[in-house]
Write a protein that binds this DNA or RNA. Structure first.
Lengths: 172, 172
DNA sequence: TCTATGTATGTAATATCATAACACGTCAAG
DNA sequence: CTTGACGTGTTATGATATTACATACATAGA
């Protein structure tokens, strides 16, 4: 999971620090840059609307509803109808730049574009922040359980609701 | 997971047969009876609407939307406004008699009331049937991943989309 | 028994999330 | 320079869910 800039961007680089305060401006810029490269390589076009949606989601480690994104877009002169937001979000999700958080009916920027994917989402019920944890071991357990029933897993969604370190500390 | 009636109710009794054809009338009646006992023990009232909602969901191993349930209810003389369905579903979910399938914005009867809970849901994308698999190992993997990030898990949602044995066979 | 209290149900209105269908503009390939 | 694919914008509608309030109903305490 760690990418380059490990020193400059602890929050991005180290999964165990995802909830810790970090230089988020850098963190977001780094992810955006990576997304641009990946989109180019995939022959996908990161147009102004799409790019802006990704930037908006990258402003925080929170999930945002499609209409929240849309409000931001329309305030900036883009279209103000739902499909504008949904289409950009759908594109970004297909590219793996954005994740859909089903529990919240919302979307969050992927902090590890181009990597493993299908992570586990850790959703803080107090501050609404969303972090990604490695999903491979969890998916393996799901596949094991499914195999015993003859079920062929194609996609898994794993979302955990709870308290992030900061909020757990504040509660205590 | 297996309960009594193992011979009479293979579909209910054996997780590995949940997708297999079985005496579903019996299966549903058995789950309903267990729910009644559990509700009584918990001091919760399984009123006519609530009971009927559970029966409706037990008619199949599929997930139903709240409005589908509501249509059935109103056709039978119960209220015809959304809160009627949502309240009953919420109650049943709190009692552990119904699960919410977030991926589908829908609800499915729990086939193992009173047992472990927080299972993994296996959702067939072709026939829409939903089965429950043991969730404990998966939850353990989630908690392990979360612990490494200092996140305290309270609830987890695990949903796998794929093909049930019957539909996988038909596809091949 | 009566009444107070909590709980369940019914209803109206509205909020929130999401998609279908069509029009228009841009740009690159033929 | 035209065609076709794609992206964006807009209208309209559909699907999911909740808030707020009114009414009934059960049951425990006076």
């Amino acid at each position: 999971m760690p990418h380059d800039h490990a020193e400059a961007c602890p929050g991005c680089a180290d999964p165990s620090a995802a909830f810790a305060p970090h230089d988020h401006t850098h963190c977001a810029a780094d992810v955006l840059a990576r997304a641009e490269v990946l989109a180019g390589a995939a022959g996908a076009r990161l147009t102004p609307v799409r790019r802006r949606v990704l930037e908006i989601l990258l402003e925080s480690h929170r999930a945002m509803g499609a209409y929240d994104v849309l409000n931001r877009l329309s305030a900036e002169g883009f279209g103000n109808q739902p499909p504008v937001a949904y289409r950009a979000l759908e594109f970004l999700e297909e590219q793996g730049f954005v994740h859909r958080i089903r529990r919240l009916n919302a979307f969050a920027a992927c902090m590890h574009p181009g990597e493993s994917h299908a992570p586990v989402f850790l959703i803080c019920r107090t501050c609404q922040s969303v972090a990604e944890a490695a999903g491979a071991p969890v998916r393996a357990a799901v596949e094991a359980a499914a195999a015993g029933m003859g079920f062929a897993v194609e996609r898994t969604t794993v979302e955990a609701l709870g308290l992030c370190p900061a909020c757990a500390g504040a509660a205590a």
